[in-house]
Simulated scan of single mutants.
Amino acid sequence: MYLLVPIFLSSPLLKLIPTNPAALSLPTSLSLRPSPGRGLGVFALSPVPAFEEVGRYVGELICAAENERRYKGGGWRSRLWRLGRRLRGETVTGDYVYSIEPDLLVDGEDTARSGWTRYLNHSGEPNLAAKSLTQDMYGEPKVWFYALRDIDVGEELTFSYGSKYWDENDDVL
């Protein structure tokens, strides 16, 4: 018996695309693939009309003190937390934290608890905008992205991370 494997399944590019829950939550109208100079990015496979909601930013809700402890703090608790993340193959950068208000943040770094919007890249000329509410009609915090203009097939979906995201030495695109 022979197992026939299509050539594309053995492609080195296939190894670049994650198969975690966040990546697998991507709608069929979008594609996750390498973005030049940025790692992975989200690209439109069908047109996106202006002002249409494209997705929500989800993850673990944390306070500012927890964010500080996880990503900037020392101590045995934060070291143990980071070790646990690394053992599961998760990153510990703090780059996926979205601040709804000063003491209410969404941590989208854990791919088991986040969604595909964690792969949206920054642009100085974004085609998406983020909106957030501390409470939606169900009493829950909500962060979502909508199209600022019509987005064509093949375009990368991007938003502005805001000036507070960047360090003074960063080369912002």
Rank of each mutant, 00 (worst) to 15 (best):
W144A: 03
N121W: 02
L9Y: 08
T93D: 09
R38W: 06
Y71H: 05
L9Q: 13
D150C: 13
G154S: 03
Y98N: 02
M1H: 12
E109D: 05
S31L: 15
D150N: 15
I7P: 00
K72C: 04
S29V: 09
S99Q: 13
Y165Q: 11
L30D: 06
E140P: 02
S163Y: 05
N127Y: 09
T158R: 09
Q135E: 07
G84Y: 02
E90N: 12
D103Y: 00
P21L: 15
L3C: 02
C63F: 01
K142C: 13
G74A: 13
T19Y: 03
S46H: 12
S163E: 15
L104S: 06
G115S: 13
A22Y: 11
R113G: 00
G37K: 12
T19M: 08
G84L: 07
L128W: 09
D95P: 00
S132N: 05
D171M: 02
L26A: 05
F51E: 12
S123Q: 03
T28I: 11
A44E: 02
G139H: 10
S25Q: 04
K142N: 07
V58F: 01
N169C: 03
V106Y: 03
L32M: 08
T28G: 04
E68I: 09
R77A: 10
S114R: 11
V54P: 00
F8K: 10
D136T: 04
L173G: 04
F43S: 07
G84H: 08
I151P: 03
L104M: 15
A23P: 03
P102L: 15
L3E: 02
L104K: 12
F51I: 07
S46L: 13
V58W: 00
R69C: 09
L104Q: 10
E52I: 07
A129Q: 10
G41A: 04
L24G: 01
L9W: 10
N169A: 11
G59N: 05
S78Q: 05
R88L: 14
S123N: 02
I7H: 01
P47M: 09
E155S: 07
L87G: 04
G124F: 01
D110T: 10
G94S: 14
A112T: 07
I100F: 00
W166E: 02
L128S: 08
L32S: 14
G74P: 05
T158Y: 01
V54W: 01
L104N: 07
P141Q: 08
C63K: 13
P21H: 10
N169P: 00
S163N: 11
D107N: 11
R149E: 02
T111K: 08
M1P: 01
E60F: 00
F51T: 10
R79D: 04
A130D: 01
P102I: 14
G59H: 05
D110L: 14
S11D: 03
R82M: 01
L14D: 03
H122F: 09
A112F: 02
L120I: 12
E140T: 14
L105E: 06
V58A: 04
F51V: 11
V172L: 02
Y98F: 15
C63G: 14
G94N: 12
Y165A: 14
L148A: 04
